[in-house]
């Protein structure tokens, strides 16, 4: 479905008065299959978020290509295609800052519907209400602003936005970090249930091996802009052989 072909991203940075190339993502290739669940695990600064934004067509790669069903979507202009934008959605790390502070919950969830589906008002409202019910958000929050919701509720609004347009792939960028363990478990279970109801590929971008093991069938371990190991583990920790992967596994709670 989605394929990264030797994508890389580098920035020019000034170090001690000299311009040098900083490689955020080194040449990397991988495939995301329809309906499968993946994780991209690595410490902060390993290039996970950069890679996920390249996959989404939000950031142009320095080299390489991103293919959606064989067609290139590398670069910012690809997302101008409504069809591409609707197929690839992303849930950002911080629920509060990912939502416009002026928007009500209704407007936040309706935004992708208005931009990408262009439904009549009545249908739009029906869809927003049904998404809120599915995300276990009370209708009384419909006219609240993001700042008036709890962290877990904000996250659920973000997920509702992402699933509103029935995408084929959702990337969760540190989607449950910063939430307490009970809320975190609840949201992860909700995501599992959602995937059973409406088949969709998931890519969890996280520093937390726990989350990756719980949610993903295939885990890509990323270090210093490079994927150092990929394992289809389905919860089996013993399959990791790279020392960095072993370190991440050993740091699990």
């Amino acid at each position: 479905m989605l394929e990264a072909v030797r994508v890389e991203k580098s920035y020019a940075v000034r170090t001690q008065g000299r311009m040098k190339a900083f490689h955020a993502v080194r040449p990397t290739s991988f495939r995301i299959e329809e309906g499968a669940s993946y994780a991209l695990v690595g410490e902060s600064g390993s290039g996970k978020t950069t890679l996920s934004q390249i996959l989404m067509g939000l950031l142009p790669p320095t080299a390489g290509d991103i293919l959606l069903d064989g067609a290139s979507i590398a670069g910012k202009s690809a997302r101008r295609d409504r069809n591409v934008a609707a197929q690839l959605q992303m849930v950002l790390q911080d629920g509060k800052s990912a939502l416009d502070p002026r928007f009500t919950v209704y407007d936040s969830i309706a935004e992708p519907i208005r931009n990408l589906l262009k439904l009549p008002r009545e249908k739009e409202r029906e869809l927003v209400v049904s998404l809120m019910q599915r995300m276990e958000l009370s209708e009384k929050h419909l006219h609240n602003r993001a700042g008036e919701l709890s962290g877990g509720q904000q996250k659920r609004v973000c997920i509702a936005r992402a699933i509103a347009v029935s995408p084929r792939l959702i990337i969760f960028d540190e989607a449950v970090s910063g939430l307490d363990v009970i809320v975190r478990k609840h949201i992860l279970d909700l995501l599992k249930a959602l995937r059973r109801e409406r088949p969709c590929a998931y890519l969890f971008v996280t520093h937390d091996m726990d989350v990756a093991m719980y949610m993903a069938e295939t885990i890509h371990v990323m270090k210093e802009g490079e994927i150092v190991e990929r394992v289809t583990c389905k919860g089996n920790q013993t399959l990791f052989v790279h020392p960095y992967s072993r370190l991440l596994v050993s740091s699990m709670a």
Partner: peptide
């Protein structure tokens, strides 16, 4: 800000982002 990235993900173009956000 991050919500602008969120708006882009939600399919908003630059003009819409300027006027709506």
């Amino acid at each position: 800000k991050e919500y602008i990235l969120g708006a882009r993900i939600a399919g908003a173009g630059t003009v819409r982002i300027i006027f709506r956000h």
